[in-house]
Design a protein around this nucleic acid. Structure first.
Length: 271
DNA sequence: ATGGCTTACAAAGTAAGA
């Protein structure tokens, strides 16, 4: 089985239907994970997105905020919409692909809470939620750890830039939510909980800067390049070696009225 | 220097993103 997977925090799917269309026509992903769709399921533009070549669509929506959707050319069955941390947010959705005799493949689409401004769980409930969310992910995947043959991919906006080269200035961002030691440590625990492999860093060495998000407030995002790598694609060890290529589509940051995140694309060949 | 921007919404100013 070979397929192209993409993940994109779209920051309102209804406002950017034309950009999703542009992306899909140019890059032809077989599966597309969207985050921050910012609408309830009933307002999700399933007909328009289906017409782009995605007969299989799963949506976990919420009014005004958050929300994730997985679109696919390949058939899948919805596995779970998990309310991680029990706050009623739409931040996770998983599907199972049963492609052509191959062993099942689980695809998780995740949107980790941003965490607010103040990086102190005692003063900031949103930061507390973010840390709890990451801890809950680690416990959940840790509980599946014995199932070493399970084939899973996780894609989404994890809202943490773990490596020093995942931010424009490691020193200046140590106290900025997304790159604080508390978050990085929690994210590392999620990764270790199931031996998750960082697909993007399999293709770009850790010494090299790699970003997927640039603030709307930078007048010239490319010139200042104050980016962060907040979006990720991970795979379980059973899939290591299956990701043959990876692209961060930074040119999408220049598209008209685009998201502040850009798509991340990975090509898989699974025996 | 985090905020100069951008989004949704019981539509003018809030809350949220990160």
């Amino acid at each position: 089985m070979r397929f192209r997977l993409a993940t994109w925090n779209i920051n309102s799917v209804r406002l950017r239907l034309d950009l999703v269309s542009r992306f899909v026509r140019a890059h032809r992903p077989d599966m597309l994970c969207l985050q921050e769709i910012k609408c309830i399921e009933g307002k999700f533009p399933a007909r328009e997105l289906g017409a782009l070549g995605f007969p299989h669509i799963a949506v976990a929506g919420q009014k005004g905020y958050h929300g994730v959707a997985t679109l696919s050319r390949l058939p899948f069955t919805l596995m779970e919409r998990r309310d991680i941390c029990g706050r009623g947010h739409a931040r996770h959705l998983s599907v199972v692909l049963e492609g052509g005799g191959a062993k099942p493949l689980v695809l998780h689409n995740v949107y980790v809470p941003a965490g607010g401004d103040i990086p102190d769980p005692a003063l900031n409930e949103k930061f507390r939620h973010k840390l709890e969310f990451l801890e809950a992910l680690a416990s959940w995947f840790g509980a599946m750890r014995g199932r070493t043959k399970i084939r899973m991919i996780m894609a989404g906006d994890l809202n943490v830039a773990p490596l020093p080269t995942d931010v424009w200035s490691h020193r200046q961002l140590l106290k900025v939510v997304s790159h604080t030691p508390a978050e990085v440590e929690r994210l590392e625990r999620v990764q270790a909980s199931h031996g998750w492999v960082d697909v993007m860093r399999r293709h770009v060495p850790a010494e090299k800067k790699l970003f997927t998000w640039w603030s709307y407030r930078n007048r010239d995002w490319r010139a200042s390049n104050r980016g962060r790598r907040l979006d990720h694609i991970w795979m379980t060890p059973a899939l290591d070696g299956a990701a043959r290529a990876m692209t961060v589509l930074d040119e999408a940051r220049d598209w008209p009225r685009t998201s502040d995140h850009v798509p991340v694309i990975a090509d898989f060949v699974i025996e």
